[in-house]
Design a protein around this nucleic acid. Structure first.
Length: 487
RNA sequence: GGCGGCAUAGCCAAGUGGCUAAGGCAGAGGAUUGCAAAUCCUCGAUCCCCGGUUCGAAUCCGGGUGCCGCCUCCA
């Protein structure tokens, strides 16, 4: 079956076909760098990562672009707005540029902890002001925008497809009376492309005045087109961006180029935490770093978030995170067992079983990134192989399949994803116990093996308990003692 | 007020007309173990409610209830 995605633009699943055979170009709405990224942000970033990994698994060369919004958006189209990044900078008496720099570095650290592969380009809004100005000029030339006292607005009445993405029409927008008429705007739904404000901390010279800054939709269309072309394949983001952000992007991009902007739009459903909308005031707000500081690994967080289909409502809980951790441990144990010495040979039946799992895994993801049935195929295989005596060839085949699976889901144990809080500089509070290094574990395990040989079980159990408390699990097996770190 | 989505076991979550409703986590009992761990075996669902269509519905239609999103800057 061909790959298919649910395209917001058409409201249904459709077969995916890139504009250029074999190559996929996609753009992802990235973070606004005025704070640490939270798990909701990461639901969106993880969709982008899974999408990229699966497309690569299916043989496509993928070009990914994710913006870094380092100039806050204007607060609203009715002026008087405050830039979020600037608001934070003023509050903390910091230079907004330094603040952005700090949170950009933190963002990349979080990406690593979460096992997210790097996009090819992370364009910063502040480094693309000339590109935005050029696009605004094109919009003015083509009659899609107008200037009022140093500000430039997009004229939505000039773009008849406005609303096509979100299912809105100008009439239905008017029906909800939440937008007050703006004196400078020809139409209440016209949106700002450029604003002037001499008091803004981050400001640039433009054809419309010496002290201005871009509107909050223009960066994505300008940067997307710069790095991916006037038309590209996929654009992703949170569902809240559907309207007005992405709607405006389409209007700007297509208004400027006269060509179709993006083929396929994918939107991530917002997650809930403990059954409620995540909000700082509710105390159910988690950044990645909050969870790492509680001792959870990046991959456990990754699994907890990724294992729910991106368009389904997801309820994030610490219990769920704990379940994710346990699930990954089960996979770890299976993977470790595959390295055991085995008699040579192959079992045709097992080879067929692995092939079936491979087919089911790929087919599930082909269908709009169906992660649940894909992971179920893996778990079913593990359950079946656990009860079979595998020969060397069988184990090698299973290892190869697992490597493929991990290439797509990125969930199995890797050092980076197992890193604790110490590695990202959060141990100030000392919430994490000190994990022993491999040499120390080896020493304690050897000591315990000797104690067991002398039948000094109290001593042996004490060592096992100590290691357990420090995140290392021991297993006494017929062929010796094996250890692993908790997920 | 306008537009849209979701509701499946203690928790998470597949399944969109038809064999005994996937899979994971948690829990109970058993095998195994010095004890554990891991693994294996056994055990769990009036598919939100009411009505309808159909030989047959979790799945389609109508109504209801609940939750969520967008319509303002939030993934």
């Amino acid at each position: 079956m061909a790959i298919q995605f649910f395209n917001t633009l058409t409201g249904r699943k459709e077969p995916f076909q890139p504009l250029e055979p074999g190559r996929v170009r996609m753009y992802h709405c990235g973070p606004t760098v005025y704070d640490y990224a939270h798990i909701g942000n990461f639901r969106s970033f993880l969709l982008a990562d899974l999408l990229r990994r699966h497309l690569e698994y299916r043989g496509f060369a993928v070009t990914q672009v994710m913006n870094l919004t380092d100039v806050g958006h204007i607060r609203d189209d009715a002026d008087e707005g405050e830039d979020k990044l600037e608001a934070r900078a003023r509050r903390e008496r910091q230079d907004p540029w330094a603040l952005a720099e700090h949170y950009i570095r933190a963002f990349f650290e979080d990406l690593d902890v979460m096992g997210v592969r790097r996009a090819q380009v992370y364009p910063r809004a502040t480094e693309h002001i000339p590109d935005m100005i050029r696009q605004i000029e094109r919009l003015l030339e083509r009659g899609h925008a107008y200037v009022v006292e140093g500000a430039v607005y997009f004229d939505v009445s000039s773009f008849e497809r406005y609303g096509a993405l979100s299912g809105n029409t100008l009439e239905s927008l008017r029906a909800g009376h939440r937008i007050d008429p703006h004196p400078d705007k020809r139409n209440p739904f016209d949106f700002a492309l450029w604003k002037s404000d001499p008091h803004h901390l981050m400001k640039w010279e433009s054809p419309w005045g010496p002290h201005g800054f871009p509107g909050w939709h223009i960066e994505c269309s300008a940067m997307g087109m710069k790095y991916l072309g006037e038309s590209f394949d996929i654009h992703t983001g949170g569902e809240d961006n559907k309207f007005p952000h992405h709607e405006c992007e389409i209007a700007q991009a297509e208004g400027a180029s006269g060509r179709p902007f993006v083929r396929t739009w994918l939107h991530v459903r917002h997650l809930l935490v403990d059954g409620e909308k995540m909000a700082k005031s509710k105390g159910n707000f988690y950044t990645i770093r909050d969870l790492v500081a509680k001792g959870y690994s990046g991959r456990a967080i990754r699994h907890a978030i990724l294992s729910t289909h991106y368009r389904a409502p997801m309820n994030f809980t610490l219990d769920g995170l704990e379940a994710a951790r346990r699930t990954l441990e089960r996979i770890d144990v299976f993977r470790a067992a595959l390295a055991d010495p085995r008699p040579p040979g192959d079992t045709p039946e097992i080879e067929a079983r692995i092939e079936a799992a491979r087919a089911a895994f790929g087919a599930a993801l082909d269908d709009d990134l169906g992660i649940s049935p894909a992971l179920a195929a893996l778990h079913e295989l593990i359950g079946e192989l656990n009860k079979r005596a595998l020969r060397a060839g069988d184990a090698a085949r299973a290892r190869a399949f697992l490597a493929e699976v991990d290439d797509v889901v990125g969930l199995f144990a890797t050092p980076a994803q197992l890193r604790g809080a110490a590695e990202i500089g959060l141990t100030a509070g000392g919430t994490l116990r000190a994990a022993p290094d491999d040499a120390e574990v080896a020493r304690l395990v050897a000591e315990r093996v000797a104690a067991r040989a002398r039948r000094e079980f109290a001593r042996a159990d004490a060592i096992r308990d100590e290691l357990k408390a420090r995140g290392v699990i021991l297993e006494d097996r017929a062929d010796g003692t094996r250890w692993r770190r908790e997920g």
